[in-house]
Computed example of a mutant assay.
Amino acid sequence: MRLRTPLRRHQSRRYTGLVVGAVAVLSLAACTGSAEDAADDENSGSDSAPAAAAGSNDEEGDQVTIGFSAPAADHGWMAAITNNVRDLAEEYPDIDLQVAEGTNDVNLQISQVETFINDKVDAIVLLPFDGAAMTPVAIKAMEAGIPVINVDREFDDPNAARVTVLGDNYGMGVSAGQYVCEQAGGDKDAIVAEIAGIDSLPLTQDRSQGFEDALSECGLDVDARQAAEFTVESGEEVAANLLQAEPKIDFLWNHDDDQGVGVLAAIENAGRDEFTMIGGAGSANAMRAIQDDNSVLKATVIYPSTQGADGVKLARLLVQGKAMSDLVEVEVPRTVQLYAPVVTSDNVDQFIDSAFES
């Protein structure tokens, strides 16, 4: 029986109130002049461009000091988060970026945010090591009049952030599952395996739920599932165990391209090539393998490593009193959720330049 209801209900619950759903929405060319200014220009008979054409959110504005804190760069995706933030800040001479050293110590990250508050920065962009633990200090910053942009790992109180920038973990699972359904071509006997990340994390649970819901739409199930730890070593160990237990697989979804390096090593060691593998997060090495077309890896699902940079860009707009030009709304949205597209050989050239290295 095809179970359509859970997919629609889960998507509706997760996406209600989201204002934006794609990375492209952060291309922030904008008109910043007022209607009165435009009218003055028109009435003056001058040859100058109207305000709508003359202004841009990317033009230099008032100096903005932004504090940024994230976990330690002990993972390719996390390293890319901070690297992309630094690269973005270099493009804007009006951004004074203060980057705290990456840490997986919650108490140290709390003290970093307290330093930003004491220094009276204009905004704080924060990817918490632990969203719940960082919530009180984020609220403290907000109460001090410093807007907080929460990235990736959510606080447990909506009042702790002015803006939240998220990837789409449930959507990753949906995208991977829909790709499997398309490739299966109606074969309801296809054997589907899954190598997840850390099972105790909500992000892993969301990815698996999305995958399961999407597969149910074409009458498929997850026949074999094991969890790894988002590391190369755990990926290789778990994949070796799964391959030994499953003599035949048609599709394998691995949640994370960093641990996917180990997964692919195990597959090669086992001499298995009868199935199609789908990756997760969108690393550059995964995309190169897709381009080369010489392994079982044929696709990966994006989990953008641009989230921190997007947060900095939004912080700049907030402090400078600007909005997002592609929207009619005159304020920066409360929530921005980025899309989770599937990358294949057909579109890999579109994504590889912004991909992170595992």
Results as ranks from 00 to 15, higher is better:
Leu7Cys: 05
Arg9Asp: 13
Arg13Gly: 09
Ala22Cys: 07
Glu36Ser: 13
Ala39Asn: 09
Ala39Asp: 12
Asn43Lys: 14
Ala49Asp: 09
Asn57Thr: 12
Asp58Arg: 13
Glu60Thr: 15
Asp62Glu: 15
Thr65Ser: 11
Pro71Tyr: 00
Asp87Gly: 12
Asp87Ile: 08
Glu91Gly: 15
Tyr92Ala: 12
Leu97Thr: 06
Thr103Met: 05
Gln109Phe: 01
Ser111Gln: 11
Gln112His: 15
Phe116Leu: 05
Asn118Gln: 14
Asn118Lys: 11
Leu126Tyr: 08
Pro128Ser: 13
Pro128Cys: 08
Ala133Phe: 06
Pro136Gly: 06
Ala144Lys: 11
Pro147Gly: 02
Ile149His: 01
Asn150His: 08
Asp152Thr: 14
Phe155Val: 10
Asp156Ala: 03
Pro158Met: 05
Thr164Leu: 05
Gly167Asn: 09
Gly173Glu: 00
Ala176Met: 03
Val180Asp: 02
Asp187Met: 06
Ala190Cys: 06
Ala196Glu: 09
Gly197Gln: 08
Gly197Ile: 07
Leu203His: 09
Ser208Lys: 11
Gln209Ala: 15
Ser216Pro: 00
Glu217Met: 14
Ala227Phe: 15
Val232Ala: 13
Val232Thr: 14
Ser234Asn: 05
Glu236Val: 00
Glu236Arg: 15
Val238Arg: 10
Ala239Ile: 04
Lys248Thr: 13
Lys248Phe: 04
Ile249Arg: 06
His255Asp: 11
Gly262Cys: 04
Val263His: 02
Leu264Ala: 08
Leu264Met: 14
Ile267Glu: 02
Glu268Cys: 00
Ala270Ile: 06
Met277His: 01
Ala281Arg: 06
Gly282Pro: 05
Ala286Lys: 04
Ala286Asp: 05
Asp293Gln: 11
Thr300Leu: 04
Ile302Gln: 00
Ser305Met: 01
Gln307Cys: 07
Gly308Phe: 07
Asp310Ala: 14
Gly311Leu: 10
Lys313His: 09
Gln320Lys: 06
Glu329Trp: 08
Glu331Ala: 09
Val332Leu: 02
Val336Ala: 07
Leu338Asn: 12
Ser345Asp: 15
Asp346Met: 02
Asp346Ala: 14
Asp346Pro: 04
Phe351Cys: 03
Phe351Gln: 03
Glu357Met: 10
Ser358Phe: 01
